[in-house]
């Protein structure tokens, strides 16, 4: 990770989340449904094809990951039940259940309902998410049909189990590690867990209007999840392009990094810009050691009003850093 290593010494010291309260996410699903693959592809930079060689998970593994908020992701074996989990469901802010889109649904759906029902009793605030996974393995029509089918089935069974479950807020996502759908889905899961999201969104909205940007994302560079975006709708194509762009930049850094030249990189924030033929410039500015601002700008703004743009970036950075500090204080009990 070029940008990550390159920026270790940049700006304020990296916010350390050690000993702070972590937001816990539970990853559940049948054996082979793809839980470990999802975790490894998102947070360990494992190429999707390499997931083929993953060993089955035999006991719950906790992975820590620091972004705007400190996360702890629990990757569980397929046969986990609420009783064998080894923790109270009340500890988890989000429960993700992964279903292989080509699997028979009966067993996984029954197990999912056990978990969701238990979680709903113990912790009504937890967000309940269903990843209908390995979606790329089916043709488009068939994929949508299976997705609808699973969704309907879950809703019907919830209602059959108890009419009160009708209120249960279950969200469905079509995902695959072979494209960026897993990043988009996980980003949406993450947004619900970030208390400071409205403030980040405000900063992005202000940035967009002051810089005449048509879209802006705040990306976590290493995982390529976006932690916030402005109020304009997210176009999947643009989201995919941004994911690829962040990957390209991260991979580019080490290629021409000289082992024998020591750049003094303190207080230096990397930036980049791609210009596209149809009059858009896609800019990248590192904001904190983990986060980068990506924005779609009119090329005129980029070429002729650079000073204004840089000023807006600095303003944005200060806002994000302030929010990060507040978040950390809240978690260490200083507030």
């Amino acid at each position: 990770m070029a940008t990550a290593t390159a920026t270790k010494s940049n700006g304020p010291p990296p916010t350390s989340f050690d000993n702070l309260q972590r937001t816990k996410i539970l990853l559940l699903g049948q054996r082979g449904s793809g839980k470990t693959s999802i975790q490894q592809v998102l947070f360990n930079d494992v190429p999707p094809k390499q997931t083929f060689y993953l060993e089955p998970t035999s006991r719950a593994v906790k992975h820590r990951y620091d972004t705007v908020i400190p996360l702890e992701i629990w990757d569980c074996p397929g046969n986990t039940s609420p009783d064998t989990l080894g923790a109270s469901l009340a500890d988890f802010s989000s429960i993700i259940f992964v279903i292989d889109i080509q699997d028979s649904y009966q067993q996984p759906v029954a197990r999912m309902l056990d978990f969701f029902a238990a979680a709903y009793q113990e912790n009504p605030g937890a967000t309940l998410e269903v990843f209908v996974h390995k979606a790329e393995s089916l043709a488009e029509d068939y994929k949508i049909e299976n997705f609808r089918h699973i969704q309907q089935r879950v809703i019907d069974e919830l209602f059959d189990a108890s009419p009160e479950y009708e209120q249960m807020p279950v969200n469905f996502h079509l995902t695959s590690v072979y494209d960026h759908s897993i990043r988009e889905a996980f980003s949406r899961v993450l947004h619900k867990l970030i208390d400071s999201l409205p403030y980040l969104e405000d900063l992005l909205n202000v940035f967009c209007s002051n810089s005449q940007a048509s879209k802006a994302f705040l990306f976590d560079v290493k995982s390529r999840l976006y932690v916030a975006t402005d109020e304009s709708p997210v176009d999947t194509g643009m989201h995919n392009l941004c994911c690829d762009y962040v990957r390209t930049l991260s991979a580019f850094g080490p290629l021409y990094m000289s082992a024998s030249v020591n750049a003094d990189s303190r207080s230096f924030y990397p930036s980049a810009a791609v210009s596209l033929a149809q009059g858009t410039t896609l800019t990248y500015h590192l904001i904190t050691p983990q986060l980068a601002l990506l924005a779609m700008l009119h090329p005129g703004v980029f070429e002729e009003r650079r000073g204004l743009l840089e000023y807006n970036v600095v303003f944005f950075r200060e806002g994000v850093q302030e929010i990060a500090l507040v978040e950390r204080d809240a978690r260490s009990g200083n507030l």
Binding site: T7, G237, L241, G253, M257, A272, L276, A277, T280
Partner: peptide, 16 residues
């Protein structure tokens, strides 16, 4: 894939 065309790229990284 976005019906866009790549034109140019510039980068200012700490090392180069």
């Amino acid at each position: 894939r976005m019906r866009e065309e790549f034109h140019a790229l510039e980068m200012e990284l700490p090392e180069f």
